[in-house]
Protein backbone atom coordinates (compact mmCIF):
# COMPACT_ATOMS: atom_id res chain seq x y z
CA UNK A 1 0.00 0.00 0.00
CA UNK A 2 1.35 3.43 -0.92
CA UNK A 3 2.00 5.86 1.92
CA UNK A 4 -0.72 8.23 0.61
CA UNK A 5 -3.30 5.42 0.61
CA UNK A 6 -2.17 4.38 4.09
CA UNK A 7 -2.59 7.92 5.37
CA UNK A 8 -6.07 8.23 3.88
CA UNK A 9 -7.04 4.87 5.38
CA UNK A 10 -5.64 5.97 8.76
CA UNK A 11 -7.63 9.21 8.63
CA UNK A 12 -10.86 7.43 7.75
CA UNK A 13 -10.35 4.86 10.50
CA UNK A 14 -9.54 7.64 12.99
CA UNK A 15 -12.53 9.74 12.03
CA UNK A 16 -14.80 6.68 12.07
CA UNK A 17 -13.58 5.71 15.54
CA UNK A 18 -14.12 9.25 16.81
CA UNK A 19 -17.68 9.33 15.50
CA UNK A 20 -18.42 5.89 16.96
CA UNK A 21 -17.13 7.00 20.36
CA UNK A 22 -19.18 10.21 20.25
CA UNK A 23 -22.29 8.44 18.99
CA UNK A 24 -21.97 5.94 21.83
CA UNK A 25 -21.33 8.65 24.38
CA UNK A 26 -24.17 11.00 23.35
CA UNK A 27 -27.05 8.86 24.64
CA UNK A 28 -25.04 8.17 27.80
CA UNK A 29 -24.99 11.89 28.50
CA UNK A 30 -28.76 12.05 28.78
CA UNK A 31 -29.87 8.53 29.69
CA UNK A 32 -29.70 7.20 33.24
CA UNK A 33 -26.30 5.75 33.98
CA UNK A 34 -25.86 2.14 33.00
CA UNK A 35 -24.66 0.03 35.90
CA UNK A 36 -20.98 0.27 35.05
CA UNK A 37 -18.22 0.39 37.62
CA UNK A 38 -17.13 3.90 38.56
CA UNK A 39 -13.55 3.31 37.43
CA UNK A 40 -14.73 2.96 33.80
CA UNK A 41 -15.32 6.74 33.66
CA UNK A 42 -11.81 7.95 34.54
CA UNK A 43 -10.44 5.30 32.19
CA UNK A 44 -12.72 6.50 29.36
CA UNK A 45 -11.77 10.12 30.05
CA UNK A 46 -8.08 9.23 29.97
CA UNK A 47 -8.53 7.43 26.61
CA UNK A 48 -10.59 10.19 24.98
CA UNK A 49 -8.26 12.93 26.24
CA UNK A 50 -5.23 10.98 25.07
CA UNK A 51 -6.74 10.91 21.54
CA UNK A 52 -7.71 14.60 21.76
CA UNK A 53 -4.15 15.42 22.87
CA UNK A 54 -2.72 13.63 19.81
CA UNK A 55 -4.86 15.57 17.34
CA UNK A 56 -4.67 18.92 19.19
CA UNK A 57 -0.99 19.49 18.34
CA UNK A 58 -1.12 18.97 14.55
CA UNK A 59 -4.47 20.78 14.44
CA UNK A 60 -2.83 23.77 16.16
CA UNK A 61 -5.44 24.14 18.91
CA UNK A 62 -5.20 23.89 22.69
CA UNK A 63 -6.54 20.97 24.69
CA UNK A 64 -9.11 22.98 26.63
CA UNK A 65 -11.06 24.12 23.59
CA UNK A 66 -11.50 20.50 22.46
CA UNK A 67 -12.14 19.13 25.94
CA UNK A 68 -15.02 21.30 27.15
CA UNK A 69 -17.43 21.01 24.19
CA UNK A 70 -16.67 17.36 23.48
CA UNK A 71 -16.69 16.06 27.06
CA UNK A 72 -19.47 18.50 28.04
CA UNK A 73 -21.59 17.42 25.09
CA UNK A 74 -21.06 13.68 25.18
CA UNK A 75 -20.26 12.71 28.78
CA UNK A 76 -22.71 12.72 31.69
CA UNK A 77 -20.92 15.33 33.83
CA UNK A 78 -22.48 18.66 34.74
CA UNK A 79 -20.91 21.58 32.89
CA UNK A 80 -19.59 23.04 36.18
CA UNK A 81 -17.26 20.04 36.60
CA UNK A 82 -16.37 19.92 32.89
CA UNK A 83 -15.27 23.56 32.95
CA UNK A 84 -13.22 23.04 36.12
CA UNK A 85 -11.48 20.07 34.49
CA UNK A 86 -11.10 21.96 31.17
CA UNK A 87 -9.14 24.72 32.87
CA UNK A 88 -6.86 22.19 34.56
CA UNK A 89 -6.35 20.45 31.20
CA UNK A 90 -5.41 23.76 29.53
CA UNK A 91 -3.11 24.82 32.38
CA UNK A 92 -1.38 21.46 32.79
CA UNK A 93 -0.65 21.17 29.05
CA UNK A 94 0.76 24.72 29.02
CA UNK A 95 2.87 24.11 32.14
CA UNK A 96 4.41 20.97 30.66
CA UNK A 97 5.56 22.81 27.54
CA UNK A 98 6.40 26.30 28.86
CA UNK A 99 9.91 25.73 30.36
CA UNK A 100 11.32 24.31 27.12
CA UNK A 101 9.58 26.95 25.02
CA UNK A 102 11.19 29.64 27.18
CA UNK A 103 14.66 28.11 27.00
CA UNK A 104 14.43 27.66 23.23
CA UNK A 105 13.36 31.26 22.75
CA UNK A 106 9.94 30.27 21.40
CA UNK A 107 8.13 32.01 24.27
CA UNK A 108 8.93 35.61 25.24
CA UNK A 109 8.69 36.40 28.96
CA UNK A 110 8.54 40.20 28.56
CA UNK A 111 5.65 39.95 26.10
CA UNK A 112 3.90 37.33 28.24
CA UNK A 113 4.00 39.09 31.65
CA UNK A 114 1.73 42.12 30.96
CA UNK A 115 -0.68 40.05 28.86
CA UNK A 116 -0.73 37.28 31.49
CA UNK A 117 -1.58 39.85 34.16
CA UNK A 118 -4.53 41.23 32.19
CA UNK A 119 -5.83 37.78 31.22
CA UNK A 120 -5.42 36.40 34.78
CA UNK A 121 -7.44 39.28 36.17
CA UNK A 122 -10.27 39.00 33.65
CA UNK A 123 -10.30 35.17 33.89
CA UNK A 124 -11.44 35.64 37.49
CA UNK A 125 -14.30 37.79 36.25
CA UNK A 126 -15.14 35.19 33.60
CA UNK A 127 -15.15 32.40 36.18
CA UNK A 128 -17.43 34.42 38.49
CA UNK A 129 -19.86 35.04 35.62
CA UNK A 130 -19.69 31.44 34.41
CA UNK A 131 -20.31 29.97 37.87
CA UNK A 132 -23.33 32.21 38.45
CA UNK A 133 -25.16 31.31 35.24
CA UNK A 134 -27.51 28.36 34.72
CA UNK A 135 -26.22 25.33 32.80
CA UNK A 136 -28.62 25.94 29.89
CA UNK A 137 -27.45 29.57 29.51
CA UNK A 138 -23.81 28.49 29.61
CA UNK A 139 -24.50 25.69 27.10
CA UNK A 140 -26.16 28.11 24.65
CA UNK A 141 -23.35 30.67 25.00
CA UNK A 142 -20.65 27.96 24.87
CA UNK A 143 -22.23 26.41 21.76
CA UNK A 144 -22.19 29.79 20.02
CA UNK A 145 -18.61 30.50 21.15
CA UNK A 146 -17.41 27.07 19.96
CA UNK A 147 -19.10 27.53 16.56
CA UNK A 148 -17.41 30.97 16.39
CA UNK A 149 -14.07 29.33 17.24
CA UNK A 150 -14.66 26.81 14.43
CA UNK A 151 -15.04 29.70 11.96
CA UNK A 152 -11.95 31.42 13.43
CA UNK A 153 -9.81 28.27 13.18
CA UNK A 154 -11.08 27.38 9.71
CA UNK A 155 -10.37 30.86 8.36
CA UNK A 156 -7.22 31.55 10.38
CA UNK A 157 -4.45 33.19 8.43
CA UNK A 158 -0.84 33.52 9.46
CA UNK A 159 1.37 36.53 9.16
CA UNK A 160 5.05 35.76 8.71
CA UNK A 161 6.04 39.26 7.74
CA UNK A 162 7.39 40.99 10.81
CA UNK A 163 7.99 44.68 11.28
CA UNK A 164 11.01 45.43 13.50
CA UNK A 165 9.65 48.84 14.61
CA UNK A 166 7.86 48.65 17.97
CA UNK A 167 4.90 50.87 18.85
CA UNK A 168 5.07 53.33 21.75
CA UNK A 169 3.99 50.91 24.52
CA UNK A 170 6.18 48.12 23.14
CA UNK A 171 9.15 50.50 23.09
CA UNK A 172 8.49 51.43 26.73
CA UNK A 173 8.24 47.75 27.74
CA UNK A 174 11.03 46.51 25.48
CA UNK A 175 8.79 44.04 23.64
CA UNK A 176 11.13 43.11 20.83
CA UNK A 177 13.55 40.35 19.99
CA UNK A 178 15.18 38.40 17.23
CA UNK A 179 15.52 34.88 15.92
CA UNK A 180 17.57 33.11 13.30
CA UNK A 181 15.43 32.26 10.28
CA UNK A 182 16.84 29.14 8.61
CA UNK A 183 14.66 29.70 5.52
CA UNK A 184 16.51 32.89 4.61
CA UNK A 185 19.66 32.17 6.61
CA UNK A 186 19.76 35.38 8.62
CA UNK A 187 18.78 36.98 11.88
CA UNK A 188 15.25 38.39 11.81
CA UNK A 189 14.17 41.08 14.25
CA UNK A 190 10.63 41.49 15.46
CA UNK A 191 8.82 43.99 17.64
CA UNK A 192 5.32 44.07 19.10
CA UNK A 193 2.79 46.30 17.32
CA UNK A 194 -0.62 47.54 18.47
CA UNK A 195 0.19 46.58 22.07
CA UNK A 196 -2.79 48.52 23.44
CA UNK A 197 -5.17 46.51 21.25
CA UNK A 198 -3.39 43.35 22.30
CA UNK A 199 -3.95 44.13 25.99
CA UNK A 200 -7.62 44.93 25.33
CA UNK A 201 -8.20 41.71 23.36
CA UNK A 202 -6.45 39.62 26.02
CA UNK A 203 -8.83 41.09 28.59
CA UNK A 204 -11.76 39.76 26.54
CA UNK A 205 -10.06 36.40 25.92
CA UNK A 206 -9.52 36.05 29.67
CA UNK A 207 -13.23 36.52 30.38
CA UNK A 208 -14.20 33.91 27.75
CA UNK A 209 -11.54 31.45 28.96
CA UNK A 210 -12.65 31.71 32.60
CA UNK A 211 -16.34 31.67 31.80
CA UNK A 212 -16.31 28.53 29.64
CA UNK A 213 -13.16 26.80 30.91
CA UNK A 214 -11.84 26.49 27.37
CA UNK A 215 -8.31 27.85 27.83
CA UNK A 216 -7.42 30.44 25.23
CA UNK A 217 -4.80 29.15 22.78
CA UNK A 218 -7.36 29.38 19.96
CA UNK A 219 -7.52 33.18 20.44
CA UNK A 220 -4.09 33.98 21.93
CA UNK A 221 -2.13 32.92 18.86
CA UNK A 222 -4.16 34.94 16.29
CA UNK A 223 -4.02 38.04 18.51
CA UNK A 224 -0.25 37.72 19.09
CA UNK A 225 0.47 36.94 15.43
CA UNK A 226 -2.09 38.96 13.46
CA UNK A 227 -2.66 41.93 15.81
CA UNK A 228 0.63 42.26 17.70
CA UNK A 229 2.74 41.06 14.73
CA UNK A 230 4.81 38.47 16.59
CA UNK A 231 6.24 35.72 14.36
CA UNK A 232 3.91 32.69 14.36
CA UNK A 233 6.16 30.32 16.33
CA UNK A 234 6.97 32.95 18.96
CA UNK A 235 3.23 33.72 19.15
CA UNK A 236 2.38 30.04 19.71
CA UNK A 237 5.04 29.62 22.41
CA UNK A 238 4.17 32.86 24.19
CA UNK A 239 0.48 31.92 24.12
CA UNK A 240 1.28 28.79 26.12
CA UNK A 241 3.28 30.79 28.65
CA UNK A 242 0.38 33.24 29.12
CA UNK A 243 -1.98 30.29 29.67
CA UNK A 244 0.06 29.05 32.63
CA UNK A 245 -1.02 32.14 34.58
CA UNK A 246 -4.39 32.99 33.03
CA UNK A 247 -5.79 29.46 33.38
CA UNK A 248 -4.38 29.20 36.92
CA UNK A 249 -6.45 32.12 38.23
CA UNK A 250 -9.68 30.69 36.81
CA UNK A 251 -8.78 27.16 38.00
CA UNK A 252 -8.40 28.53 41.55
CA UNK A 253 -11.91 30.01 41.31
CA UNK A 254 -13.41 26.68 40.23
CA UNK A 255 -11.33 24.83 42.85
CA UNK A 256 -12.52 27.16 45.61
CA UNK A 257 -16.13 26.65 44.44
CA UNK A 258 -15.79 22.86 44.68
CA UNK A 259 -16.15 22.48 40.89
CA UNK A 260 -12.93 20.51 40.36
CA UNK A 261 -13.61 16.80 40.83
CA UNK A 262 -10.34 14.82 40.85
CA UNK A 263 -12.07 11.79 39.31
CA UNK A 264 -12.92 13.91 36.23
CA UNK A 265 -10.05 16.39 36.14
CA UNK A 266 -6.97 14.27 36.85
CA UNK A 267 -7.34 11.52 34.20
CA UNK A 268 -8.33 14.19 31.67
CA UNK A 269 -5.27 16.35 32.33
CA UNK A 270 -2.84 13.39 32.39
CA UNK A 271 -4.40 11.86 29.23
CA UNK A 272 -4.27 15.16 27.36
CA UNK A 273 -0.65 15.79 28.32
CA UNK A 274 0.54 12.33 27.30
CA UNK A 275 -1.45 12.56 24.06
CA UNK A 276 -0.03 16.01 23.30
CA UNK A 277 3.52 14.71 23.79
CA UNK A 278 2.83 11.89 21.34
CA UNK A 279 1.09 14.34 18.98
CA UNK A 280 4.17 16.57 19.01
CA UNK A 281 6.36 13.58 18.13
CA UNK A 282 3.99 12.48 15.35
CA UNK A 283 3.85 16.00 13.95
CA UNK A 284 6.09 15.09 11.02
CA UNK A 285 4.17 11.96 9.98
CA UNK A 286 0.58 12.98 10.70
CA UNK A 287 -1.09 14.82 7.81
CA UNK A 288 -1.63 18.08 9.72
CA UNK A 289 -4.05 19.65 7.22
CA UNK A 290 -6.37 16.64 7.29
CA UNK A 291 -6.15 16.26 11.08
CA UNK A 292 -7.09 19.94 11.28
CA UNK A 293 -10.17 19.32 9.10
CA UNK A 294 -11.21 16.40 11.32
CA UNK A 295 -10.79 18.55 14.44
CA UNK A 296 -12.83 21.36 12.88
CA UNK A 297 -15.59 18.86 12.00
CA UNK A 298 -15.53 17.39 15.55
CA UNK A 299 -15.63 20.85 17.11
CA UNK A 300 -18.50 21.92 14.84
CA UNK A 301 -20.43 18.77 15.80
CA UNK A 302 -19.71 19.24 19.51
CA UNK A 303 -20.54 22.97 19.34
CA UNK A 304 -23.86 22.24 17.65
CA UNK A 305 -24.61 19.51 20.19
CA UNK A 306 -23.82 21.92 23.09
CA UNK A 307 -26.04 24.63 21.58
CA UNK A 308 -28.94 22.22 21.02
CA UNK A 309 -28.50 20.84 24.54
CA UNK A 310 -28.71 24.37 25.92
CA UNK A 311 -31.84 25.04 23.88
CA UNK A 312 -33.38 21.81 25.17
CA UNK A 313 -33.66 20.36 21.63
CA UNK A 314 -31.10 17.53 21.93
CA UNK A 315 -30.78 16.44 25.55
Amino acid sequence: MRSGDRRRLLQRVGFGLALIVLAQAAPAASAPLAPVSWWVWPLALFGICFLLGIVAVPAGVGGGVLFVPIVGGFFPFHLDFVRGAGLLVAMASALAAAPDLLRNGLADLRVALPLMLVASLTSILGALIGLSLSASTVNIALGLVVLGIVVLIARAKRADHVDPRPDRIATRLGLQGSYFDLAVGKEQHWAAQRTGWGLFLFAIIGVIGGMFGVGAGWANVPVLNLVMALPLKVAAGTSGLILTGASASATWMYLDSGAVLPIVAVPSAVGMMLGARLGARLLRVLPAANVRRIVIALLAFAGMRTLLKGLGIWM
Partner: peptide, 19 residues
Protein backbone atom coordinates in the same frame (compact mmCIF):
# COMPACT_ATOMS: atom_id res chain seq x y z
CA UNK B 1 10.46 29.41 8.93
CA UNK B 2 12.41 27.78 11.71
CA UNK B 3 13.20 29.56 14.89
CA UNK B 4 16.37 28.35 16.51
CA UNK B 5 17.40 31.29 18.60
CA UNK B 6 15.71 34.22 20.19
CA UNK B 7 18.91 36.10 20.72
CA UNK B 8 20.25 37.02 24.09
CA UNK B 9 16.83 37.15 25.72
CA UNK B 10 16.33 33.36 25.54
CA UNK B 11 19.42 32.92 27.67
CA UNK B 12 18.91 35.85 30.00
CA UNK B 13 18.99 35.29 33.75
CA UNK B 14 15.30 35.95 34.34
CA UNK B 15 14.26 33.57 31.56
CA UNK B 16 16.48 30.80 32.92
CA UNK B 17 15.17 31.40 36.43
CA UNK B 18 11.53 31.53 35.36
CA UNK B 19 11.86 28.33 33.30
Amino acid sequence: MTVVDQGARAESEEVRKYA
